[in-house]
Write a protein that binds this DNA or RNA. Structure first.
Length: 246
DNA sequence: AAGGGACTCAACCGCTCTGAA
DNA sequence: GTTCAGAGCGGTTGAGTCCCT
């Protein structure tokens, strides 16, 4: 019944990865792929659990990662997506080729949250703080945009725009920063095909592929050339580090 | 220069979801 | 239909670094 028991935790290494471990993992995955993470450490000669290997690969070693700082446009897009998706970091990350959910989550928790608070906005609800307290009480402290209201989620592009417009009106625009933020927000609406975003979200539950699906051909085409260039540069940089090491 | 608080981010933990048996 | 392992996800932690006094 079922599968083999999970990897025994005894004797497995934890903590930061060494360059040698990175090399072993990367080398193995390049040659064999990632069919079964449980078997990866065993075959790659690593004293790590499969979960740890997966995390290291996804968040750090993948050659298509964009490890540069997040731009202001990206930051604004994260805010906008968070307003719609809540803390579904993997869904948000899917809109940013080369970015990981962990990276976006960290960026949100360390910078964007603070930025929104400085603007007098609740990072959870994206409403002005006083309104937000009221709202949170009413909704039993659940996120109004992310959880439990999926059946009310707008389905067409026009519905999505109406929701965005409504949110825009709801929020008091007291500072220049906030105005700029929502100007960027509207520009994004123009640039993004929201219909395809909806499709990618509704279909993404069936998509277990670890590869990126921006779900948006416009965004992808804009990003792809520079992103691929940067990814290849990162890859070369990593390879150089290992060459120096061995 | 040194100490300590703030910040960042890699990594871990524990949970849920999915699919195989 | 049930059980259980694997994969994935989001929350949290803590070590390292930065910055201010």
């Amino acid at each position: 019944m079922g599968r083999q028991p999970c990897c025994e935790k005894l004797g497995l290494k934890r903590g930061p990865w060494s360059i040698e471990e990175d090399y072993k993992l990367m080398n193995f995955i390049i040659n064999n792929g990632t069919q079964c993470w449980r078997m990866v450490p065993k075959h790659a000669g690593l004293l790590r659990c499969g979960k740890s290997c997966r995390l290291r690969w996804v968040n750090y070693l993948r050659p298509d990662l964009n490890r540069g700082p997040l731009s202001e446009v990206e930051e604004n897009q994260i805010i906008q997506l968070h307003a719609r998706l809540g803390n579904r970091w993997s869904k948000i990350a899917a809109h940013f080729p080369g970015r990981t959910d962990n990276e976006i989550k960290n960026h949100w928790n360390t910078r964007i949250k603070r930025r929104l608070k400085l603007l007098g906005l609740d990072p959870l609800t994206h409403k002005p703080l006083e309104q937000s307290v009221e709202h949170v009480t009413k909704s039993e402290q659940t996120c109004c945009y992310s959880n439990g209201d999926d059946d009310k989620e707008p389905q067409t592009e026009s519905e999505l725009y109406l929701v965005a417009e409504k949110k825009h009106e709801e929020i008091a625009l007291d500072s220049n920063d906030t105005i700029n933020l929502f100007q960027s927000y509207e520009m994004l609406w123009e640039n993004l095909s929201m219909e395809s975003m909806v499709h990618s979200e509704t279909s993404s539950s069936n998509d277990n592929s670890p590869s990126f699906s921006t779900g948006d051909s416009n965004t992808r085409s804009i990003c792809e050339s520079s992103y691929m260039h940067e990814a290849s540069q990162n890859w070369i940089h990593s390879a150089d580090l290992w060459d120096a090491w061995f």
